[in-house]
């Protein structure tokens, strides 16, 4: 039996009367640890976390308040100027930054829905027993193992306007065969989104698949006994069963898409023009190529703020829908029992 089934969680812990833990939940030890013990466990992680996550998260604010050129001796304090410049679209940093934010937005808005739906379709197809299933599952996951550098170098070749196989085969089936996939719009976005979906769909598919396999077969049987159609079973059993991972997959996919860098950097070099130069590219360029770290740090906070707001919206949406789905789920179960 899987250790994560509901029964294990609900069971009262033996020795739950120990005062130190209150015994509210299973799994808590009845013996209170020495106060130093948890911190000793935490120390190695906290040292890393403090130095490379908490410290930089705060240090970034400090940097963003300065005209911080990495190669210069002095870093004059400029207050909020970096932020004000960003908010002024006519400034030298504001205009291109929002242009790159728009590019990130276009990419995220077009890739996230696909990356939520296509891997689900793949996972549903794979969630059956047939010869070579594990091999096929590996095939769909394979591109993700390769990393952005390999797949970008590969697709830049495949999508080459003049010598790329993609245009050649499109021509063979009678479609336009001279599309400049990486140097014209909207073809460049189509390319970047399609390549990204091809590359990462295996990741989400594996998570979906794991969740699908956790859905108890009895629920499907019960739904069938109840006379639920295929579509009803999908909506009332499969989707609620995926609920635990759906929010994670959504937020994670949004953040991954919003962090897109390598594909643009290697395939389109931000072009044509600056159209596929994403916010991350802009930040890296500003901070690590032009060494304007103050401005770059300010940009990264603005981008982070936007992403946090977006994640908040997703949480809110899911919280709402969770309740609805859980109710639907309960209804199914009740129907089954009656």
């Amino acid at each position: 039996m899987s250790p994560s089934t509901a029964h294990a969680v609900d069971a009262p812990a033996p020795g739950a009367s120990a005062p130190a833990t209150g015994g509210r939940r299973h799994g808590r030890s009845p013996i209170a640890p020495a106060p130093a013990t948890p911190w000793l466990f935490l120390a190695p992680f906290l040292a890393l976390f403090g130095t490379f996550v908490l410290l930089p998260a705060g240090l970034g604010v400090w940097i963003s308040l300065h005209d911080w050129d990495y190669t210069f001796v002095s870093h004059p304090f400029v207050g909020l100027r970096n932020y004000l410049d960003l908010l002024d679209p006519s400034s030298t940093s504001g205009g291109p930054f929002w242009e790159s934010m728009r590019a990130t937005g276009v990419f995220t808005a077009s890739s996230v829905p696909l990356l939520l739906v296509v891997p689900l379709l793949v996972a549903l197809m794979m969630n059956a027993r047939f010869p070579g299933r594990n091999f096929l599952r590996a095939v769909y996951f394979a591109p993700y193992v390769l990393g952005v550098a390999v797949i970008s170098v590969l697709w830049r070749y495949l999508l080459d306007t003049n010598i790329g196989p993609v245009n050649h085969y499109l021509g063979l089936v009678g479609l336009p065969d001279a599309t400049a996939w990486l140097t014209s719009q909207p073809a460049a976005w189509v390319s970047l989104v399609a390549v990204t979906v091809w590359w990462t769909l295996g990741f989400n598919a594996v998570i979906y698949l794991a969740a699908l396999q956790d859905i108890p077969a009895e629920l499907y049987e019960a739904a069938q006994v109840d006379g639920a159609s295929v579509a009803q079973r999908f909506w009332n059993v499969t989707l609620p069963g995926l609920r635990p991972v759906l929010m994670f997959v959504t937020v994670n996919t949004i953040i991954m898409s919003a962090n897109m860098f390598g594909q643009s950097y290697l395939m389109t070099e931000g072009g044509p023009g600056r159209s596929t130069r994403t916010a991350i590219m802009r930040i890296a360029d500003t901070g690590l190529s032009s060494f304007q770290m103050g401005s770059a740090a300010a940009m990264s906070y603005v981008l982070t703020l936007v992403l946090m707001l977006l994640s908040g919206v997703v949480f809110w949406l899911f919280r709402d829908r969770d309740a609805v789905r859980t109710r639907a789920n309960v209804r199914t179960r009740e129907k089954v029992r009656s």
Binding site: A20, T21, G22, R28, S29, A32, P33, P35, T37, P38, W39, L42, L46, F49, F52, V53, L54, L55, P56, A57, L59, G60, I63, Y70, V251, I255, A258, N259, A279, I280, I283, A284, G287, L288, M293, A296, A297, S300, Y301, L303, T304, L307, M308, S311
Partner: peptide, 29 residues
């Protein structure tokens, strides 16, 4: 384990899980 500060530590971990890595790039450099 139950200990003082646990919620703070776990809260920080969760918070940083939500924070995109981009804000760390420049200062970490």
């Amino acid at each position: 384990m139950e200990f003082r500060g646990k919620r703070v530590v776990f809260g920080l971990v969760i918070a940083m899980l939500m924070v995109p890595g981009v804000i760390l790039v420049i200062p970490n450099y």
